[in-house]
Design a protein around this nucleic acid. Structure first.
Lengths: 226, 226
DNA sequence: GAAACTATGTTGCTATAGCAACGTAAATTC
DNA sequence: GAATTTACGTTGCTATAGCAACATAGTTTC
């Protein structure tokens, strides 16, 4: 267990915990790592979820199977990532997502209902609050994505994204943490069409860029794209 | 206060509460209705949110002002609706949303942090769990919306929506709770273009419809649209 | 350092969906 | 019940963005 403390301290539920607090709450919850061999599943589409998981080591992906039987990868999880937190609470539908183990992995299973039952314990409350924050953050991420997708001009999508980045980095020069392909996916557009529009915006003096480094050349004009 | 019990029992935080439980928890939390005159705001864009609100009577809308200064209505709230629940938890950013009072309104303010502090009380826990469920539901609503928006063929969007409805109603015949305008907005398309594509799908024998009543005529073909 | 691969930029073609404008039926108002 | 409004369907025009195919530069592999 000890070898995973570092990962856990960086995971959403235990942000801000001291090592002592972490030890204490894990003992109190009687939480232990579970091994999943490559190819197994942690959650299955259609199941009812009773636990959330924190990936301690290995590799897990979340995917869903569409009506037409096509598989779509929703998320690739990394060590420290919390998954299943949203699933746990939407009891109504069974989960539309499966999590599939890509390499032998260790997962810490958290029963969030138990956490709630034990909320008299301040550490459990602290973890709960952290989980709530995480949920809210995921919510806003989705909201931004919807905002991007809702623009029906590509230039608007790009402008919105760039202005978000400017706000986050508090600078008109920044490096976006996305490849072109990923950015295209985030904005819901074709990659080559994205490249074309970026070039146009550069030609129009709105921005300049090289790979993932962007500079906003004319903030006012960029805002007018919205 | 008594006159609002009915509304509160139908609000997300107090679902499944008995009248006695509701009375008890409200007293315990010392929660009272607050009056907001027409034109005032409950939350202001840029503020830090410390409470969530349950609209007891009146009319409130949530809106945000974009970079370009344009106002966009995000949501129209009705009696019993919980708002600000997501906002409360994303401490990082101040809220990007304002809630504006359209008619003289009464709002019950809930300090969810207080609810968490008092989680030793089973009723407070119950309310917290309800709020979590509500959050998760909102999350899934957004997720579906993203799924719709992500299709780049209008027919795919429509098919996905109709298949969702079929699943929910458990029937190939159903009445969608959206007007054309609203449906167009949900799918992120132009209303008239939506009408056109619906007509085409009818001509192609996929569906039939009259206003908001839909019938899936060929399930397999519809699935193939995805 | 040659070869293979990957990420990104460029361009022509074309289908699609936005937009505007109009028609019609139903609902609401007085 | 006439008048107004609202909701929905229809259609032509056109800009836009998807797609495919290719170019190029940078990176990795051996």
């Amino acid at each position: 267990m000890d070898k995973y403390y570092e990962v856990l301290l960086k995971s959403q539920p235990f942000l801000g915990f001291s090592l002592e607090e972490l030890r204490s709450v894990l003992e109190y919850l009687n939480a232990n790592p579970v091994s999943y061999p490559k190819g197994s599943t942690v959650f299955n589409q259609g199941e009812k979820i009773t636990h959330s998981g924190i990936l301690l080591e290995g590799s897990v992906i979340a995917e869903s199977v569409s009506y037409s039987g096509e598989r779509r990868i929703i998320q690739t999880l990394h060590a420290g990532d919390l998954f299943g937190d949203v699933l746990m609470y939407s009891e109504h539908d069974p989960t539309p997502v499966s999590t599939i183990v890509r390499e032998d992995s260790k997962v810490l299973l958290l029963d969030v209902n138990e956490l709630m039952e034990k909320a008299c314990n301040p550490l459990c409350r602290k973890a709960l609050v952290n989980i709530l924050h995480g949920l809210a953050d995921k919510f806003w991420t989705l909201n931004r994505k919807i905002a991007y997708l809702s623009c029906n001009q590509m230039r608007s999508k790009i402008a919105m994204f760039l202005l978000d980045m400017q706000k986050r980095h508090n600078s008109q020069t920044f490096i976006a943490e996305y490849s072109r392909e990923e950015l295209a996916s985030l904005l819901g557009v074709n990659r080559s069409a994205l490249s074309r529009e970026l070039s146009r915006m550069q030609k129009d003096g709105l921005i300049s860029f090289y790979k993932s480094s962007f500079k906003i050349e004319n903030l006012q004009k960029l805002r007018n794209c919205l």
